[in-house]
């Protein structure tokens, strides 16, 4: 048994979108950002790519063909597992939030990168790295909706954000504090980003900085 297991290892990976340090209750709960406003979240989807495990700062495992689409409430509910072909110990993980430039100019791809996943812009080539949508009375928009579709891969609009997080052995559970993200954007004036550009790139980097270890 031991012998067979020696060369393999399965590591669970999960990202928990949080509000006030608790998992977001999508499509149901209205949260307060400040006292008077309310905000409800209904969509959170993002790509995680190029996963690398580190031990004492040294890369010990690089996942091949590493592209994962995570979707809150969707098919995988923000989790997947890495089937590594070797055993190693680790104390840190690194990955990109989004899809790299080379992949963005490589035409059509399958699996999680298939364009039917709703994470590819049709009118201008490129992947959407992250989607966050919801409603807030701060937005004077149709149905008070806001939507952030963050992407862009060219030098001027690069929205891919590298992440490195210290972790402990066992399943990897990371949180992403959406309350902190939303309290830093002015939803009254900034509530719809659907194209690559400086605004999308800046928000993508801000949101990536909010990823940290999370205790369930």
């Amino acid at each position: 048994m031991q012998l067979f297991a020696q060369g393999r290892q399965e590591i669970a990976f999960k990202i928990v979108p949080t509000f006030n340090a608790r998992p977001v209750d999508f499509e149901h709960t209205y949260y307060h950002l400040t006292q008077s406003d309310s905000v409800m979240l209904d969509v959170f989807k993002c790509y995680i790519s190029n996963l690398v495990f580190y031990s004492a700062g040294r890369a010990v495992y690089t996942e091949p063909n590493s592209f994962h689409l995570l979707e809150a409430g969707g098919a995988n509910n923000m989790q997947f597992s890495i089937a590594a072909g070797s055993r190693f110990s680790y104390d840190e993980v690194g990955f990109d939030l989004g899809i790299d430039s080379t992949t963005n100019v490589s035409g059509t791809l399958g699996g999680d990168l298939d364009p039917t996943k709703g994470m590819y812009w049709s009118w201008q080539s490129g992947y959407i790295n992250l989607k966050l949508e919801g409603k807030s009375n701060l937005c004077k928009t149709r149905n008070h909706e806001f939507q952030f579709h963050l992407g862009g891969y060219s030098n001027e609009t690069k929205a891919i954000a590298p992440v490195r997080v210290k972790v402990t052995a066992g399943p990897i559970v990371l949180g992403i504090a959406l309350d902190k993200f939303l309290s830093n954007v002015d939803l009254a004036t900034n509530n719809s980003i659907m194209i690559p550009g400086a605004a999308a790139a800046s928000l993508a980097h801000k949101i990536a900085q909010l990823i940290e270890p999370y205790k369930e």
Binding site: S106, T108, P115, Y120, S122, Q124, S125, G126
Partner: peptide, 8 residues
């Protein structure tokens, strides 16, 4: 030049 590859 909005499209970067024939496949898409």
């Amino acid at each position: 030049g909005a499209v970067n590859h024939l496949d898409v």
